[in-house]
Structures are given as structure tokens and as C-alpha cells.
């Protein structure tokens, strides 16, 4: 979707800015907002570019750096940690061949730490896009990642 279309739908007032930025970002291929995007938002809404940039850098779900098609958010907080989330990170890094915060070369996956995902009863957990995965084990991680690879190949 184009920026102007999203704004036509949501409105151009400041209170609609964050959700529109999010909606637009999630529709882009690389899950991020470029400087040109932010400039276009400013022109379209009349909200100063400085304020839009400040918003884009403040919220963790908004990114100004290119990311993969699938964003893997791994919980980093104590309930997950005491259920071995450290190994989860190792497994993911090993499987994907990247470190936390990086994107795979094929631009398929980005690995990010996330604050508590509110699923501590299923710790350790991670979220990929809209999908939550709990009670993670090594084998589960491998099969989840494979399912995304397959899904991508089929598209």
C-alpha cells in the first residue's frame, strides 16, 4: 500500500500517526521506514519531520534500518531466562548463522531481543510476525524455522 492510501484510510491527524507508520512499515518488503518514507509522511500530514523521526526511533516495533521478511522476537526477561532462554538464543544464532540484532544474508530473518511477550506461562517463547511460539526446545526451533523457509519458497 502507498503512504497516501494508508493516510486516506486512517486520517492525517497526529493521533493516527503511529498506527499508520506501523501499518505502512509492515507492508514493506524489508520491514522498515526509510528517510524518504518519513519525509513523505511529513509532507502528507503536515506534522514536522523532526517529530516523525523522533516517533520512528522511539518505538521498538518501528525500525529505520532494513530488516528481514520475518522478524523473530526472542523474550529476554527473567521468566523466560530461568527457563533457559539463553540456549534458545544460541540455537537461533547457530541455525540462522547470524548474531542477535542481525539479518540473514537472504533477507529472510531478522533476530531481535524483545521485552516480555506476556506468555511467561509458556516460557521460553518467541514471536515471529503474528505468531507466538512457546515451550521452545531445540527441535521445535529447527522445525519452526524450516516451516518459514518452506513457506517462503512456496510463495
Amino acid at each position: 500500500m502507498k503512504i497516501s492510501e494508508i493516510l486516506d484510510k486512517n486520517g492525517r491527524t497526529p493521533d493516527k500517526l503511529i498506527s499508520s507508520l506501523l501499518e505502512y512499515q509492515n507492508s514493506t518488503l524489508c520491514n522498515y521506514l526509510t528517510e524518504d518514507d518519513l519525509r513523505e509522511f511529513a509532507e502528507e500530514t503536515g506534522i514536522p519531520l523532526s517529530r516523525i523521526s523522533s516517533v520512528a526511533s522511539f518505538y521498538s516495533l518501528l525500525s529505520t534500518e532494513s530488516r528481514g521478511k520475518y522478524i523473530i522476537q526472542v523474550c529476554y526477561d527473567v521468566p523466560c531466562y530461568v527457563n533457559n532462554s539463553v540456549n534458545i538464543v544460541e540455537e537461533l544464532e547457530k541455525n540462522l548463522g547470524i548474531k542477535m540484532g542481525q539479518t540473514t544474508e537472504d533477507e529472510l530473518f531478522t533476530l531481535e531481543f524483545s521485552s516480555c511477550l506476556g506468555c511467561c506461562d509458556k516460557a521460553p517463547v518467541m514471536q515471529i510476525g503474528e505468531n507466538l511460539y512457546g515451550n521452545l526446545t531445540r527441535d521445535k526451533i529447527i522445525s519452526i524455522l524450516d516451516s518459514y523457509r518452506r513457506k517462503n519458497n512456496e510463495q
Partner: peptide, 10 residues
Amino acid sequence: EGEPGNFKDR
């Protein structure tokens, strides 16, 4: 709801 350890509101 974002305080680690909480999921009641969800």
C-alpha cells in the same frame, strides 16, 4: 501489559 512476568490482561 509489558511488565515481565505478567500476562493476565492478555
